[in-house]
């Protein structure tokens, strides 16, 4: 029963990892950008949630109404102000600039909020649970998983059924020709980053409700998201959810064997899958 429980809890945790990963996957799909600061932006969102919650005295979930648009604005500004200048054929500039951003964000948060761990209090939501077949399911992990599924379904729908999604796919296919259709690449990329950070905003607030957080934990969140993306297969959003779940289950099983092995088990699962399925579980057929 312990093992089944570990698998179920790991699956639910995978929803959070999928939220970490979805934003990463989105911007890679649209502009081939890998954002090294992604994890630190998740942590930034958690701190924004904390600040909003304590300043206005509202429930952490209500803070989403402010955090998500704020993160989207930050994303748009970041892309138009800095990141668009780094995009070209060369791999190094975007990588090194986002790496620099990561260091700036981490130390900026340290400066403002100190290294003390913080946590958002969601009251009853954190402790409430339902008993299903002998396994106690927390309402919070359930809600997180449901929201991850909803976010990914929403992104998938946006990608394939809206004008914005069409613009994303066209720009991803061929930037110059998309420009001929009247799509301003700089703006399209700005919107992609805005959307990516909006999702990051949701991920950050849930992270802050689920665990205590501090400025140094961004790197690990980036890695979890990255692992979920690669396990699932690049450019496949539902695959990303599956990747998050695989990662969550591997960590839960590792923790079940020995608490010190939780993270290690996740990384090893990733490396094993990289060795046997380098294109991920669900590679995109159209490349």
């Amino acid at each position: 029963m312990d093992w089944l429980n570990a698998i179920v809890q790991g699956t639910l945790l995978g929803g959070l990892y999928a939220l970490f990963a979805a934003g990463l996957s989105l911007i890679f799909g649209v502009m081939r950008l890998v954002n090294i600061a992604h994890g630190d932006l998740i942590v930034l969102a958690a701190y924004l949630g904390l600040t909003v919650t304590s300043a206005l005295g509202i429930h952490p979930l209500a803070s989403l109404l402010l955090v998500v648009p704020a993160m989207a604005l930050i994303g748009y500004g970041l892309q138009r102000g800095i990141l668009n200048r780094t995009l070209g054929g060369d791999l190094l500039p975007p990588l090194l600039v986002t790496f620099g951003l990561s260091v700036i964000l981490q130390n900026g948060l340290l400066e403002i909020y100190s290294a003390d761990p913080q946590k958002m209090n969601a009251g009853l939501l954190e402790t409430a649970s339902v008993l299903v077949g002998g396994i106690s399911l927390g309402i919070l992990p359930l809600a997180m998983f449901a929201i991850a599924v909803a976010v990914i379904a929403g992104l998938q729908w946006m990608f394939y059924h809206t004008a914005l999604g069409r613009a994303f796919r066209a720009t991803s296919d061929n930037q110059a020709i998309a420009q001929l259709m009247g799509l301003n690449r700089a703006h399209v990329f700005g919107l992609a980053m805005a959307l990516s950070l909006a999702v990051t905003g949701i991920a950050g607030v849930f992270l802050g409700i689920r665990t205590s957080f501090d400025p140094s934990m961004g790197g690990a969140r980036l890695i979890f998201g990255f692992e979920a993306v690669i396990i699932g297969g690049l450019g496949n959003l539902w695959g990303t959810l599956a990747g998050g779940v695989v990662l969550g289950i591997a960590q839960a099983i590792g923790a079940q064997i020995n608490p010190g092995w939780q993270l290690l088990a996740g990384h090893i699962a990733f490396l094993v899958l990289l060795a046997v399925r380098p294109k991920g579980l669900f590679p995109r057929m159209d490349g």
């Binding site: 081939r32 890998v34 090294i36 791999l91 980036l222 890695i223 990255f226 490396l271």
Partner: peptide, 11 residues
Amino acid sequence: RGAYFAIGTWV
């Protein structure tokens, strides 16, 4: 490949 290689080294 590319930037994903970078994060792979971090893992």
